[in-house]
């Protein structure tokens, strides 16, 4: 009895600490969320931190399709579509490339494979700023400057590093005998990938997709550098919006816009988070 009591006190202490720190961590989000339903006069008149006196959803509709950002009064919606048009294809392409790279690096040993792997992974550690000028040149050469296609191209290539790392490490757990059996059965590189390796991959593909989607959605530097005006992704639009705050404080609408911009990654986390943890620890073959 005594033992259970101490145990439960420990539990209480642990939960209290965890809740305390998550409150601190979530406070900025809570403030933004609360402000998104407050009237701007109410915010200016009292404080940026406070509970709404009445629930106003008008901020949300204004933020979505009528608020002026950079002189375009169509709200944040067009920029969210831009971001989706960049993020979805780039996520799919970089994940497929990563799976293919990881497969060949893990299961088809060739001379210098570890060196190639090290080069690919180095992409993760190079600062983005360093690559701005090379990318600018490449995009200009390809005629992709200031297009969503250009950003898809950049993120597909850049995202490959992480995707390759994830998939290669996952595929290392596939027993080499499986490949030998497939060789004898007469399957080649792509048939083995398609019929044997890919069906084993959902756990790691989910992880990679979540990772790529989140980082490409949240990416800002390339977005703001290589696109302008109506072509910008939502992260870049948020910056324009933030810089307006000094001139025209519309805290409620701006907060709603921020929440809208964060919504896709939040949804991915809420629905995909558990697969993420499971996939990172799952083995390829039971």
């Amino acid at each position: 009895m005594n033992r259970t009591a101490t145990l439960s006190w420990n539990r209480v202490a642990i939960y209290a600490a965890l809740i305390f720190f998550s409150l601190i961590y979530l406070a900025p989000f809570a403030v933004v969320l609360l402000n998104s339903v407050r009237d701007v006069r109410e915010i200016v008149g009292s404080s940026a931190i406070g509970f709404p006196k009445e629930l106003r959803l008008s901020n949300w509709s204004a933020a979505w399709n009528s608020y002026c950002i950079n002189g375009h009064c169509a709200g944040i919606a067009p920029f969210i579509w831009n971001s989706l048009a960049i993020t979805v294809p780039a996520t799919l392409i970089s994940t497929m490339l990563g799976a293919l790279n990881g497969y060949s690096l893990a299961l088809w040993r060739f001379k210098g494979d570890n060196f190639v792997f090290a080069l690919v992974v180095m992409g993760i550690f190079l600062p983005e700023q360093m690559k701005l000028i090379p990318w600018a040149t490449v995009l200009a050469e390809l005629g992709l400057s200031n297009t969503a296609m250009g950003l898809v191209f950049i993120h597909s290539i850049q995202g490959m590093s992480f995707a390759t790392l994830f998939c290669r490490n996952y595929y290392l757990a596939i027993p080499p005998e499986l490949l030998k059996a497939a060789h004898i059965d007469g399957a080649g590189f792509f048939r083995i990938f398609w019929h044997i390796v890919l069906p084993l991959s959902p756990p790691i593909l989910i992880v990679t997709v979540i990772w790529q989607f989140t980082s490409i959605w949240n990416e800002f530097l390339y977005g703001v550098t290589f696109t302008s005006g109506e072509q910008q992704p939502v992260t870049a639009a948020l910056v324009a919006l933030t810089s307006q705050i000094a001139q025209a404080p519309e805290f409620g609408i701006q907060s709603a816009a921020v929440v809208l911009a964060a919504l896709p990654t939040l949804l991915v986390y809420i629905f995909g988070g558990r697969f993420f943890v499971r996939g990172l620890t799952a083995g390829a073959v039971k």
Binding site: P175, E177, L178, K180, A181, I184, H195, I196, L200
Partner: peptide, 13 residues
């Protein structure tokens, strides 16, 4: 044709 120690059956088939 070869039979392996681990059987090497394709797990998803």
């Amino acid at each position: 044709a070869m039979v392996f120690q681990s059987y090497a059956l394709y797990p998803t088939m």
